[in-house]
Amino acid sequence: MSATRFSVLIVSTGNVCRSPIAEELLRAQLAATIGPDARAFRCESAGTWGHSGAGMESHAAAVLAERGIEPGSFVARELNPDQVLEADLILGATRDHREQVHLLDPYAAGRTFTIREFARFARRVYPATLPEADPAVRARALVDRVAMLRTPRPGPGRPDDDIADPFGAPLHVFRLCADSIAEGLAALVGHLTPASAAGSRSSSAV
């Protein structure tokens, strides 16, 4: 884990649907919310049973294109311990992915969540209580707060913490999947600017 950068690792099963969608959506949300500061964030994805070397599933690429995101030459890869060790925050699509990360590195438990689980706890953190600092510092503080709210240890979670695998489903199912992912990631990205700045943007948007 770097002191000057913040690394997010997103995990699903094959790394061809949910996790690449989340990787690209997170990158886009960061750029839209914090602008040049997004360069301090590294967004990656992997699969617990990754189709290493495969491209993104066509419907996954299509839903990103509908949102104005060009994923480029994405290549799937399988999750490995080094990725877990280097990540400041690990977000699984489901509770099973979270547990697979724990099996690789039990010490990663305090920074490993499902996307929806992290969002659920992050919404309980008042942005003004985070440090008035750059986004990477605020992100670290947010992960610490979320981990504290989940103490004393990660529990089994809730069924609605999972985002279902859309592999093989029609395009509209991928759209619903992308909506769920985007909503969950917004709970992270929305905390990365000081409350005063966020309030100013909200006021100007009214």
Rank of each mutant, 00 (worst) to 15 (best):
V143H: 10
G110M: 06
Y126P: 08
D82W: 14
A128I: 09
V125Q: 05
D134C: 11
D144G: 01
P106D: 06
H97T: 10
G155F: 05
D82K: 11
L104H: 02
P166L: 07
G110D: 13
L91I: 12
L85F: 02
H172Q: 15
H172N: 14
R120M: 13
V146I: 13
D144V: 10
A122P: 11
R145M: 11
R150T: 11
R150W: 14
A93I: 01
T151N: 10
E86D: 15
H97I: 04
D105F: 05
A169T: 13
E99I: 00
T114N: 06
A164N: 14
L185C: 07
E117H: 10
A136Y: 04
P166K: 01
R111M: 06
D96L: 11
Y107H: 12
R120G: 01
C177L: 04
H191Y: 04
P170A: 10
R150K: 12
A141M: 14
V143D: 08
I90R: 05
P154F: 13
D144L: 03
F167Y: 15
A108V: 10
P81V: 10
L188W: 02
G184V: 01
A87R: 03
R138V: 11
Q100T: 10
D165M: 14
I115A: 02
L91G: 01
G92Q: 12
V146T: 04
P166D: 12
A187Y: 01
V173P: 09
D179Y: 09
F118T: 03
D88R: 02
F167P: 00
R140Q: 12
E99H: 02
D88S: 04
R98T: 02
R124V: 04
G157Q: 07
